[in-house]
C-alpha cells in the first residue's frame, strides 16, 4: 500500500494523463506543499508504479491501476458524503481526502453499490467504474437509483443529477427540479413522466437516466 503522500501524487498523475490527455507529467507540475515530492516519487518508483525519466514522470500499468483505485475511492467518498450524509458542500473536499485513504479496498464496492453505481462525482468528474459496476452485482439493496431503473409509481426525493451538460442541468434547475425535491415516477414509455408538486414533467430517457432518486415508497 502506498503512503498517503504517494497516493496524492498518483491522483494528480492520473488526472493529468488519463483525463487531461498528457502522455507524461513534468516534475515541477507535481510540486505541492502537501507532500515531499522527491520522497513520494522515490517510493512510487521503488514499487514500480511510476517511471521517472529526465524531468518527466509517467505512470506504469501497475501505477495506473493503483491511481484509478484511489480516484475512484475519492470520488465515491464525495458522493457518499454529499448524497447520503448530506454534508455541507464546503466541508466535502477535505473530508473526502481523508476518506479516500481510509476506505479499505472492497468496501468501495459496497459503497458504490449502495449509491447505485454512480458515474460522476458531485463535481461532475467521472468515477472510474469498479468490478461491481461492470457485473452489476446487487449485494445491498440500493438506496439511490436513476429514474430509468425505478418502477412506475415509485415516490422519493431527488438525490442528485449527474448531467455534465450545463444547459440541461440549468434547465432542470430552472423548472425547480433540484436535489431534495419530492418526485413520483408516473410512466416510462413512450417518454418518462414525473410528477413534482402538482406539475407533471415529461423527459427523455437520456435525461431520466441522469436523475438519481432515493426511493422512499412504492
Amino acid at each position: 500500500m502506498p503512503s498517503n503522500e504517494a497516493e496524492e501524487v498518483l491522483e494528480i498523475l492520473w488526472i493529468k494523463t488519463e483525463e487531461e490527455g498528457l502522455s507524461a507529467v513534468r516534475k515541477e507540475d507535481l510540486l505541492s506543499a502537501d507532500y515531499d515530492l522527491e520522497s513520494a516519487l522515490d517510493e512510487l518508483a521503488e514499487e514500480g508504479s511510476v517511471e521517472v525519466k529526465g524531468g518527466n514522470v509517467r505512470l506504469t500499468e501497475k501505477g495506473k491501476g493503483e491511481a484509478r483505485d484511489i480516484i475512484r475511492r475519492h470520488r465515491l467518498a464525495e458522493r457518499l458524503l454529499v448524497d447520503v450524509l448530506e454534508m455541507a458542500e464546503e466541508r466535502v473536499e477535505e473530508a473526502a481526502c481523508r476518506f479516500e485513504h481510509a476506505l479499505p479496498r472492497g468496501v468501495d464496492e459496497s459503497v458504490c453499490t449502495l449509491l447505485g453505481h454512480p458515474r460522476l462525482c458531485p463535481d461532475g468528474n467521472p468515477i472510474p467504474p469498479g468490478r461491481c459496476c461492470e457485473e452489476g452485482r446487487e449485494k445491498i439493496e440500493r438506496l439511490i437509483s436513476p429514474l430509468t431503473e425505478l418502477e412506475v409509481g415509485c415516490e422519493g426525493r431527488i438525490a442528485y443529477i449527474t448531467s455534465r451538460r450545463h444547459e440541461r442541468l440549468q434547465r432542470l434547475m430552472a423548472m425547480g427540479i433540484v436535489p431534495g425535491l419530492p418526485v413520483r415516477l408516473l410512466q416510462t414509455f413512450p417518454s418518462y413522466v414525473i410528477e413534482v408538486e402538482e406539475t407533471q414533467i415529461a423527459l427523455d430517457a437520456e435525461i431520466a437516466d441522469e436523475i438519481y432518486v432515493r426511493c422512499e415508497r412504492h
Binding site: R165, E167, R168, R171, L172, M175, S191, V193, T199, Q200, I201, A202, L203, D204, E206, I207
Partner: peptide, 9 residues
C-alpha cells in the same frame, strides 16, 4: 435540444 416539457392538467 433536450426534451423537458411541462404537462399541464
Amino acid at each position: 435540444s433536450d426534451f423537458i416539457v411541462e404537462i399541464p392538467p
